[in-house]
């Protein structure tokens, strides 16, 4: 199929960017969206132009790098997928596709479609860990009894890949789905209890410091999240935060 692409081009974080139109032809419907971008970049390189910078790594939906806001939706129109898992059969011959970087103050554009998501890393560093003795006599995790229900819910929360689609899609650029998932994955397990109070307080404090917005429960994040992280995780984070604040 033949497509018109409207893509955000921006030289670096300091330069103003703009939307630029491109044409691609003979795109197979079996291609992934990133393969279509590869075709375009090959075209650009061959004609001596600067290729479009975009993040990608695993290309199988597990690293969370491939951030693209496609036709007004994070990772495009499909559900439960990242951009690398998005197929071109979701589009029709002759379509115009708008491609933008994640937009959030806490995710500044580095170049073209690449954004800086270090704010997520700093939130994780603030508390998304447990302290374990690794001196050689580490305990087997299975020695702690954990209910099936708690293990399942913790695992669901832990499937978050930190892609940032929740922030990108949220009208408030709120990171609460991401932070809710990270807080939940520890809050649900016995190993997470020791540092529970500090964890949620520090992570929320860092989230606020980074300039993410405030959740208004529109639920857009849950719909656009490639891993199906549920709003229940935000509710759990809110409860954890209240509990932690009451404790001092």
């Amino acid at each position: 199929m033949n497509l018109t692409l409207k893509i955000w081009r921006q030289k670096d974080s300091k330069t103003k960017g703009q939307m630029v139109d491109y044409k691609v032809t003979d795109i197979s419907e079996h291609m992934s969206f990133l393969e279509m971008m590869d075709v375009l970049n090959e075209q650009l390189v061959n004609s001596g132009d600067e290729p479009i910078a975009f993040d990608h790594d695993c290309r199988e939906g597990i690293c969370g790098m491939c951030s693209m806001y496609i036709n007004g939706e994070a990772h495009g129109p499909d559900r439960g997928v990242t951009t690398c898992q998005l197929h071109m059969r979701m589009f029709k011959d002759g379509d115009t596709i708008t491609i933008e970087p994640w937009r959030a103050k806490a995710f500044p554009v580095i170049k073209d479609l690449v954004v800086d998501r270090m704010s997520f890393e700093r939130i994780q560093q603030a508390g998304a860990y447990i302290s374990v003795n690794t001196s050689g006599n580490t305990q087997d995790a299975n020695s702690l009894p954990i209910s099936k229900h708690a293990a399942d819910e913790a695992m669901d929360a832990a499937t978050c890949i930190g892609c940032g689609a929740c922030v990108a899609t949220c009208k408030n650029s709120s990171a609460m789905l991401f932070v809710g998932a990270k807080v939940s994955q520890y809050a649900l397990l016995p190993q997470g209890q020791v540092e529970a109070v500090d964890r949620v307080k520090n992570m929320v404090a860092q989230m606020d410091l980074e300039g993410f917005g405030n959740c208004t429960n529109t639920g857009a994040c849950e719909i656009e999240c490639p891993k199906g992280i549920s709003l229940e995780n935000i509710a759990r984070m809110n409860r954890e935060f209240l509990k932690a604040s009451l404790k001092g």
Binding site: N71, G72, T98, R103, A104, K105, S174, E224
Partner: peptide, 15 residues
Amino acid sequence: ARVVSYAKNNGAANS
């Protein structure tokens, strides 16, 4: 929290 807004945003798709 969002300085530059999207050129195209489809809010109705998810909320």
